[in-house]
C-alpha cells in the first residue's frame, strides 16, 4: 500500500499582527496551519518570546529567577536595557504589578512615568501589563497607553469587567490589545465579539485564554488553545483567528516545584534547574498547543525555548 501523506489544508488563517516600530518591529501569526506544521502550509513568522520585567523589584519572585536580574531590577529602565542589550531580548513585557492595591499601590501617574521611561530606553517592542486588578487596571492602563502613544505596544489585559476603557485607550494610542478570559473557548470568543462590537479592529486583538503551569491545570490551557486554533483554522471562525498569548512566567514561578528547596524535597532534584525546566516545559507545551507570544522570566528557560523554536521552524 503506497503511503500518501494525509496533509490538512484549512480555510482559515491566523491574523498577522505587528508590534513595535521601526527596524525592530516584529510580526507574529500569519500561519494557515497548526503550530510548526510548515510541512502542509505556511508559517511565515516565528513565535515571539518577551522577557518579563516589573515596575517594582521582584521580591515576590523565587530566588532562582530573581538572581539573574539582581543587579538591574531596582530600576525598570536598567532591567529593560539589560534584557535588550545583554540578553538579546526580542521584546519586553513590563508588568505594572506595583499598582495593585495590595502591593505598593502605585498610582496611574507613577505607572505612566515608568512606562514612558522604559519605552524611551528601548527600541524593541513592548508589552504593557496591568496588575490584573480589574478596577485599578482600567485607570493604570489608560495612563500607560498614553505614555507609550504610537509605539505600537500590546496593552492588557482587558477582561470582561473592564474591556471598554482599556480597548478605548488602545485605539486612541495605536496599540494592540490583550483580551483575557478564563480557560473557556466560549468566553474567549464572546469577549472578542464584545470588543469588536465597540468598533475595535479584530485584527488588533491578542487572545489570552489564561495560562496555567505544568502540573497545575496545564492541560486545560493546552486544550483551550488547541480548540481556539482549530476553530480559527478549520472552521474559519473570524472571531478566533487572533494570535494567542501565554503568560507563562507568572504562573510557573509561584508553584511549589519552582520554589521548594532540594533539601526539603530531595526526590525533586536541583531547585534552580527544576525551576528553569518547569518554565521551559510549560512554555513549549503552550507553543505546541498554539501560542504565538509567550511572556517568560528566566533567561536560561528563554534561551532553551529559542533553541527549540530554531529546531522546529
Amino acid at each position: 500500500m503506497a503511503f500518501i501523506p494525509p496533509k490538512e489544508t484549512y480555510p482559515g488563517r491566523v491574523y498577522s499582527v505587528s508590534i513595535g516600530t521601526g527596524q525592530k518591529e516584529i510580526t507574529v501569526g500569519g500561519e494557515n496551519v497548526l503550530s510548526f506544521h510548515s510541512f502542509e502550509g505556511t508559517v511565515p513568522n516565528r513565535p515571539l518570546i518577551a522577557h518579563e520585567i516589573q515596575d517594582v523589584p521582584p521580591t515576590d519572585w523565587p530566588e532562582s529567577v530573581q538572581k539573574p536580574y539582581i543587579d538591574v531590577y531596582a530600576n525598570p529602565v536598567s532591567w529593560a536595557k539589560y534584557c535588550q542589550d545583554v540578553l538579546n531580548a526580542k521584546a519586553i513585557a513590563l508588568r505594572l504589578i506595583g499598582t495593585h492595591p495590595d502591593r505598593e499601590n502605585r498610582s496611574a501617574e507613577e505607572a505612566a512615568r515608568t512606562v514612558k521611561e522604559v519605552v524611551d530606553s528601548i527600541d524593541i517592542p513592548l508589552i504593557i501589563l496591568g496588575s490584573n486588578h480589574t478596577e485599578k487596571d482600567s485607570s493604570v492602563l489608560i495612563a500607560a497607553a498614553e505614555a507609550s502613544k504610537d509605539r505600537n505596544c500590546i496593552i492588557g489585559k482587558a477582561q470582561e469587567a473592564n474591556y471598554k476603557t482599556i480597548a478605548a485607550a488602545a485605539v486612541a494610542n495605536n496599540h494592540k490589545l490583550i483580551a483575557m478570559s478564563e480557560l473557556d473557548i466560549n468566553l474567549s470568543k464572546q469577549l472578542n465579539i464584545l470588543i469588536t462590537q465597540m468598533g475595535f479592529d479584530k485584527e488588533k486583538i491578542i487572545i489570552d485564554p489564561m495560562c496555567s503551569a505544568l502540573g497545575y491545570g496545564l492541560e486545560y490551557t493546552y486544550s483551550v488553545m488547541e480548540r481556539i486554533r482549530l476553530a480559527g483554522l478549520a472552521q474559519n471562525d473570524p472571531t478566533m483567528q487572533q494570535p494567542i498569548m501565554g503568560d507563562v512566567g507568572m504562573y510557573v514561578w509561584k508553584v511549589k516545584e519552582t520554589i521548594a528547596d532540594e533539601k526539603d524535597v530531595p526526590l525533586w532534584g536541583n531547585t534552580e534547574e527544576r525551576g528553569i525546566t518547569w518554565e521551559a516545559v510549560t512554555a513549549i507545551s503552550m507553543l505546541i498547543a498554539g501560542a504565538e507570544i509567550l511572556i517568560m522570566r528566566h533567561p536560561k528557560a528563554i534561551e532553551a525555548i529559542e533553541k527549540m523554536i530554531d529546531e522546529l521552524m
Partner: peptide, 9 residues
C-alpha cells in the same frame, strides 16, 4: 534522567 528532568516530564 536527573530528578528535576523526570519530575517535569
Amino acid at each position: 534522567i536527573e530528578r528535576w528532568k523526570n519530575l517535569a516530564l
